[in-house]
Structure formats: structure tokens, C-alpha cells
Design a protein around this nucleic acid. Structure first.
Lengths: 88, 88
DNA sequence: TAATGCACTTACTTCAAAGTAAGGGGTGAT
DNA sequence: ATCACCCCTTACTTTGAAGTAAGTGCATTA
């Protein structure tokens, strides 16, 4: 989910919070830390006030894009199928 | 995991139990039921004694194969990377 | 007669992941 | 002087997923 938004472009913490309101601050921070530790996202801190922290996909993280896309594509078909099921 | 083994061939409940010893009977049964309800696996019961129940990927389930493969491929690269990290 | 195999289900327990709520540190705006 | 913004962290609670253990039903085997 987080990654999905970072594919599009670099995002700030606050941006991600707004884009994914169903995830709490705690979880967002934790997952971002995990992704950073795995080297999947890059974290850039600007030492200004108010603070600004940018997250982006690392080169390594970008290798996940095809994986995300194939999963997403399948998910859409799956949803469509379930929808058609509920209609009929 | 379950699906991964079913890609290869049709399997009986007991086969899956032996192939994936780290998952309990309960979980296996539950996941198989879920997968069946989603139409991803087919369940064939042979009314013989002792009972025989076969699970296989449905046509729909087979659409997941490319997804599983791309995920698996990425996972291998990820593991390799982590291994090389731990060596250096 | 008792034990075994197959394919589960059920009841109870445990544990980690996630939710909730609050704080903190520093500055700029009201 | 106080509030708000930004990016989190910490402490406590809750929830749901999975583990464990036992039971079921029928027939063959020892």
C-alpha cells in the first residue's frame, strides 16, 4: 500500500497519512522504518523547521514494481469477478 | 504455500500435511475451505473408505500462477541479497 | 478386540500485530 | 501567550489469527 503510492512519486510522511487514512501513524512509521531497513525505500530528512522527511523508492525498491503490478492486475480481475457474482 | 504445491499437481489432504509440516491441520483445512469458497481450488471427494479428498487448482486458480512466480522470483533475489549482506 | 488411517471439526489457549491516546521538541503564525 | 504544524515515539489495550489437543466415523488390519 505504502509502496504503491511511492511508485508514483516521492512522498512526505504527512502525504502518506492523508493518502492512506486507514493506517495509523504508528503503523505508517513502523512500516516505513522496516522498509528503510530493508533498503526498499530511501528516507531523506531536511533539517528545517517545520521538519520535512521525504520517502521514495530506492533502486532496489523499484525492482518490486513489476511484482506490485502483477498483483494489482490480478486483484482487479478478482474484484470484478466477485462483483459479477454478487450481481447475478 | 498451499497453492504452490497445487501448481505442481493435484494433492490429497494428507499429502499437503506432509509437504507443509509447519502448518497445523486446522489451518490447512481452514485455508483449503477458504480457497474453495473463492473458487481457486477444486475439491473432489471420493465416497470410499478410507476417505479420499483431492485438491487441485481450478481454472481460475491457475490465473494465479504467474503472480506466484513473479513473487517467488523476487523473493529469491531478496534472499540472495540478504545472504550476501550477512557475508560481507 | 484393539489399533490404525483418513479427513477433518471443535473447544480452549496464547501471542503478536495493530489500535488508541497522549506527548514532545522546536518554530512560526494569531 | 498560545496554538498549530510536522514527524514521529511510547505506553497501554484489544483483537483476531494461529497453536494445541482431543474427538468423530467408518473400515481394514493385526
Amino acid at each position: 500500500m505504502i509502496l504503491w503510492h511511492l511508485i508514483e512519486s516521492t512522498k512526505r510522511f504527512n502525504d502518506l497519512e492523508k493518502l492512506i487514512p486507514e493506517v495509523s501513524q504508528k503503523m505508517l512509521a513502523q512500516h516505513l522504518r522496516d522498509l528503510e531497513r530493508e533498503g526498499i525505500v530511501d528516507r531523506t530528512v531536511y533539517p528545517i523547521i517545520p521538519p520535512k522527511v521525504e520517502y521514495s523508492l530506492s533502486e532496489y525498491g523499484r525492482t518490486l514494481i513489476p511484482v506490485a503490478e502483477v498483483m494489482c492486475a490480478w486483484g482487479e480481475v478478482h474484484n470484478k469477478r466477485k462483483y459479477e457474482e454478487s450481481v447475478s
